[in-house]
Simulated scan of single mutants.
Amino acid sequence: MPKQWLPPQIKRVELSTRTNGRPNVRYQLTCDTGEVNGKRKQFRKRYKSEADARQKLSQIQAAIAADAYVHVGRLTVREACNQWIDSKHNLKPTSINGHKSKLSPVCAVLGDIEVQKLTKADIDRLVKRLRAGEQAGYKKWSPRSVNYMLSIFTAVVESQQRQGHVERNVARLVEHLPSEKAEMKILSEEDMFKILDHPGRDRHLWALALYGLRRGEIAALRWEHVNFETKTVRVTENRVVSGRVITTGTPKSRRSRRILPMPDEVLDALREAHALQLQERFASASYADSDYIACDSDGRPYHPNLLTFRWRKLLRELSIDRVRLHDARHSCGSLMHMRNVPTVVIAAWLGHSSAAFTMATYIHSQDDALLVASTSYQRGVTIPVTTSVGDNVPKDK
């Protein structure tokens, strides 16, 4: 078989050392791989055999031809995460802070690893420690938080892959955890009206919560958004906490901006609170000029987390089983549903983008409703037919 000539990119090199009297031979591969930021780049490495050098040369040339060659880089995981965050120009500050919070253990534990050297095992170990509560500086993470982190970090590495900095996205190989969606609790009608009738400084806040406003919407609401003449409340802002930062911005979605007509009992609670705050303003020379409806006696706006704390305290005082403040919103949607309010109207009231999301997430059966449903199998019971907006179900004639 005739001897093959070496391609110009491969050079036979004899080392000064010898083995068993024979020269040590290496095959040095040197080939151009293109330009990065205007600088010429080359791949250079020595191999023990000519076959290995030829195989690597073939792989590099094929990758360059397919525009898939990845240059050697020193970019770290922390730098990649920061670059990805900086590239998100259209996200709200609250979303940015949430992403930073979920990427913080990635940066803390894997931050110094070069992205090109990151392995699936590195990420798996981090997930395991977060789930077990064994990662220093972090409490035990729920599957939802871990999956959130994995989704964002997958996007970070994918961005590096699209830019040609890594060959494959190892974060995509990590399996997401089974979701553990907690069963949502809602208040009974009796408990809802018990809260509405309970006197106290924050009664107007609980009334708004029971009528479907989010915690962030209540915390951001100001008296200029309340119109006592038209009996409406205008929801235009959201005041939320991300880590230790309080951010006020637009609501979660476009449809979250809404004007809601309020019943007299809610307006009465708002009038009482407004009158009290005016008295406190005139009585204090250092009263804060905040205009927030959720504030202390000095006019300083409540921290959103304080609303949750005061809600829990109220439930203990009224001997009501503990439910989250956000569950007051669930209770509002469920009560409307039980009273035959069309789903599309409930979605508009709660500020949802679709009625399907409203039905899947916020409408829940209550024990009383289940008891009524059980009577449908009794003999001689006539069940009235109701239709929602958009339904085309003919009634019995």
Rank of each mutant, 00 (worst) to 15 (best):
K3A: 14
Q4A: 13
P8T: 10
N20C: 06
N20R: 14
R22A: 15
V25G: 07
Y27A: 02
T30Y: 06
D32T: 10
R40L: 10
R54M: 03
K56D: 02
L57V: 08
L57G: 02
I60H: 00
Q61D: 10
I64L: 12
D67C: 11
A80N: 01
A80D: 09
W84Q: 08
S87K: 13
K88D: 00
P93E: 10
N97Y: 13
H99S: 04
S104E: 15
G111D: 09
I113R: 03
V115H: 04
D122Q: 04
D122V: 00
E134M: 05
W141I: 02
S142F: 01
V146T: 03
A155E: 05
G164T: 09
N169T: 04
A171G: 03
P178H: 06
E180F: 08
M184T: 13
D191S: 10
L196K: 07
D202Y: 12
R203P: 02
W206M: 04
G212Q: 01
V233L: 04
V233N: 02
T236Q: 12
R239I: 04
T247Y: 13
G249D: 14
R254Y: 15
R257G: 12
R258N: 01
I259C: 11
P263Q: 02
E265K: 14
E265D: 13
Q279L: 14
A283I: 04
Y287S: 12
D296Y: 00
N305Y: 14
L307K: 07
W311N: 05
K313V: 11
L314N: 05
L314K: 04
L315M: 05
H326Y: 10
A328K: 00
S334I: 08
S334K: 01
S334P: 07
N340R: 11
N340S: 07
V344W: 06
L350K: 04
S354N: 10
V372Q: 15
T375E: 12
T375I: 10
P384T: 04
T386D: 03
